[in-house]
């Protein structure tokens, strides 16, 4: 009984607070509109229902642009995870490799992507290649940092165990270092997953285009803004937020799925 009422509570509370927030928003829009006029209010702080209407009437354009951004985010994310993983293996393979390469990876990471973005556009032109490159740049460092940490911090006693068994270097990597580093890698992957949609939208701001009639979310932001379609802009923010949720949800699920059997971070209960 107690758990059921708790469940109901945790479902109802966010809905209740959401209604309150909407009501306050409505009130502010109304008061603002009364003092400066409703045409100004519409492009500064639109009513929630105006945003909803914009969302509905622009649904087709928003759906297409979301798909475009999701595509960039997925490609950039997969590139970041793959390249990041390979790079980590390389960095962890010998101390001198890490000493030689890590400072330059840091330099790359410290250079703000917004500064690099125009250079990418210069090299690769407007469109998908530049956008995914920007997404990649934002996502790959957390993967490298975390995975490398996991690969070099393998438990000393487990390494001794493998040495006692005369394990080859390949066996040590395959059966020990890689699985041991898995939770670290997945943590990096989660961060990359949170950043990927943001990277894709940021990339779109610099390199978005409506070639073939399809621009991404970032492109729509620029478009609506320049046309003073502010309720549509708010609707776009809503859509971007939902894309982020879906993306992070998928990545978190993958994290949970791969670790659920054995790792603390993915285990909910001890049922022995």
């Amino acid at each position: 009984m107690a758990t059921t009422s708790k469940k109901i509570q945790s479902a109802l509370l966010p809905i209740a607070s959401g209604i309150i927030i909407l009501a306050i928003w409505n009130l502010i829009s109304y008061l603002y509109g009364r003092s400066v006029g409703y045409d100004v209010q519409r492009i500064i702080i639109p009513f929630p229902h105006q945003i909803a209407t914009a969302l509905w009437s622009e649904r087709e354009a928003l759906w297409l642009s979301t798909r475009q951004t999701a595509l960039s985010a997925v490609i950039g994310f997969i590139a970041a995870v793959t390249v990041g993983y390979i790079l980590s293996m390389l960095l962890a393979s010998a101390v001198w490799v890490k000493k030689a390469l890590y400072p330059w990876i840091l330099v790359l990471q410290m250079t703000p992507v917004v500064v690099l973005a125009p250079i990418f556009v210069l090299w690769m032109g407007q469109g998908l290649p530049s956008i995914t490159a920007i997404t990649f740049m934002i996502g790959f460092f957390p993967v490298v940092a975390n995975t490398t940490m996991g690969l070099v911090s393998t438990d000393r006693n487990l390494l001794d165990l493998f040495e006692m068994s005369n394990a080859s270097k390949a066996q040590e990597i395959m059966y020990l270092r890689v699985p041991f580093a898995m939770p670290y890698f997945l943590t990096g992957m989660k961060i990359a997953g949170t950043l990927a949609p943001i990277g894709a939208i940021a990339g779109d701001l610099f390199a978005g285009s409506s070639q073939g009639g399809v621009g991404g979310i970032g492109y729509m932001v620029i478009l609506y803004n320049s046309q003073l379609k502010i309720p549509e802009l708010f609707a776009t923010a809503l859509v971007a937020c939902m894309l982020g949720f879906v993306f992070v949800g998928c990545v978190n699920w993958l994290h949970w799925y791969l670790l659920k059997d054995w790792h603390e971070s993915a285990r909910k209960t001890d049922n022995t």
Binding site: D155, N157, L158, L161, L176, P179, M182, D261, W262, H263
Partner: peptide, 8 residues
Amino acid sequence: QEANLLPW
């Protein structure tokens, strides 16, 4: 000292 098993 620790059982030193592979947790996965």
